[in-house]
């Protein structure tokens, strides 16, 4: 419980510091403070997420699920998160167009990752029909 409070305090300090720095002669530092704050907040949460992912892989082993599908899901999750992080930072810095371009690239890479799974699903369906 106290970790979420720590994160909230850190986020508020970042917001206040960012606004303050935008008034100074180096507004670019404001974007950097927000970037560093966002990175630190996620670094704090990452260990728990790693734990959840480890449990999912164990469950997949019990269910004898194919490992590659699970890893593709994790990859998609990772790509989605990193591109969301970067797109938001770009929008904060005033570069809306850059943000949308990052998201478009992320969507394309996710689609590329999803193609093998679709192929295997189609193959299994065709086998059932024959």
């Amino acid at each position: 419980m106290e970790q979420i409070m720590e994160i909230i305090i850190l986020a508020l300090t970042c917001a206040v510091a960012g606004v303050f720095i935008n008034e100074s002669k180096l507004p670019v530092l404001g974007v950097m403070v927000v970037l560093a704050g966002g990175a630190i907040i996620f670094l704090k949460v990452l260990p728990q997420l790693a734990e959840v992912i480890r449990i999912f892989t164990q469950l997949a082993d019990y269910a004898a699920l194919n490992q590659s599908y699970l890893f593709t899901v994790f990859k998609v999750l990772g790509i989605a998160y990193v591109s969301e992080f970067a797109a938001q930072i770009c929008r904060d810095a005033g570069q809306g167009a850059l943000g949308t371009k990052i998201e478009m690239a992320a969507k394309i890479s996710v689609m590329v990752l999803a193609v093998p799974i679709m192929m295997s699903v189609l193959e299994s369906i065709i086998q059932i029909l024959n």
């Binding site: 180096l26 950097m32 970037l35 560093a36 990175a39 990452l46 999750l77």
Partner: peptide, 21 residues
């Protein structure tokens, strides 16, 4: 400022890479 911020972001990306494989 860059010298201080870039290691933090690099640490984030390496950890994300290892967690999400």
């Amino acid at each position: 400022a860059l010298l201080k911020v870039i290691p933090v972001v690099q640490q984030l990306f390496t950890q994300v890479q290892s967690v999400f494989k």
